[in-house]
Amino acid sequence: MIQGSVREIPETKIDGRPATQTVDFQQTIPRSLVHRAAVSEVFVTDLNILGEGRFEVGAQWPRRHSFFGPRTPAFHDPMLYAETIRQAVLLIAHRAYGIPTSHSFLSDHKVYSVDEAGLETLGRPVDVVLRVSAHEVEYRGKNVGGMRLDFECFRDGHLIGTASERWRCVSPAVYRRVRGDHFAATPFQAAVLPAVAPALVGRDRAEDVLVAATPTDGTWSLRCDPDHAVLFDHAVDHVPGMALIEGARQAALLAVGDPYAIPGRAEFRFDTYVEFDSDCRLVAEADVTGPGRLRTVRIDIRQKGATAAHGTLGMRLS
């Protein structure tokens, strides 16, 4: 077993009194609240509002998932955790702050860190509880326009991960103006490039590979398959943030030469949309191996000669 730091979940109190309601794991929440088309792609199960700007979210990780791992028999994929955070953000936005499901969301900054011990697979689904707090809430008139949500993730009462996401939302009319000529774009505008050998990035199927087989000095082209049932589960007019992070993870695996390295921590900033109709490059630079067989990989996501997003991944070598 790989040991990670764990901490007992603190008692929830509202106005000094213990909370009596616990999150439920019996069924997932409506798929529209997390912008998913397939019920099978929903991981969050419940939301409790503990007080102003304080929440608990229930989620369940499946034993296996067609895309979100596990990457090895021993550990769930940290990207499953990242997707759970994404869904929790949307659930809180819609249920707690009344933001219409027709609004579009823009992620400016994502951070996560998760202990490998907390990702262990035990041959059964895993229930997790997210303790969430809202900060720097922005308003447009009387309506919420964005905020930062900070997360603590608990499994079996122990803290296994943290995360933070800074996001904004806009109305359909504003989004249409922002997107301009790209408003009606579809993934089918992207050229499906030849993939690197799936085994090089810890995958079994070519359709799950997001890096093209044309490396040049640590640079790979992002590869998008519009028929991918998970990454393109619903209509989108730009490359989704989760696809960019997964592409960055796969570029990082190639940079460190270890297809089963675990990205236990990540931080990404998104500066602009990544479009389907132009080549997108993933530029990866790996540091030397540090204590605990950890390598930090810096990723620059570039399109049309400019940086569209950038981040770092902490890769624990296998």
Rank of each mutant, 00 (worst) to 15 (best):
D108M: 14
H109E: 11
V111N: 01
S113D: 09
V114P: 13
A117D: 13
A117L: 15
G118T: 07
G118S: 11
L119P: 12
E120H: 09
L122A: 12
L122W: 07
G123Q: 05
R124I: 04
R124M: 10
D127L: 09
L130Q: 14
R131E: 14
V132D: 04
A134M: 05
Y139K: 13
Y139W: 11
Y139V: 08
R140S: 13
K142T: 14
N143R: 15
G146M: 08
M147W: 02
R148A: 12
F154N: 02
R155Y: 10
R155W: 08
D156A: 14
G157L: 10
G157N: 12
H158E: 15
H158C: 15
L159K: 12
I160H: 05
T162M: 06
S164F: 01
S164T: 12
S164P: 06
E165Y: 01
R166I: 14
W167M: 11
V170I: 10
V170G: 03
V170E: 10
V170K: 07
S171P: 01
P172K: 06
A173G: 05
Y175D: 10
R176Q: 04
R177L: 03
R177M: 02
V178A: 10
G180L: 04
G180I: 01
D181V: 08
D181K: 13
H182D: 00
P187L: 08
A190Q: 05
A191R: 12
V192T: 12
V192I: 12
P194L: 06
A195Y: 03
A195F: 03
A197L: 13
L200C: 02
R203F: 03
R203Q: 07
D208L: 04
V211H: 08
A213W: 06
A213V: 06
T214R: 13
T216I: 08
T219G: 07
R223F: 03
C224R: 04
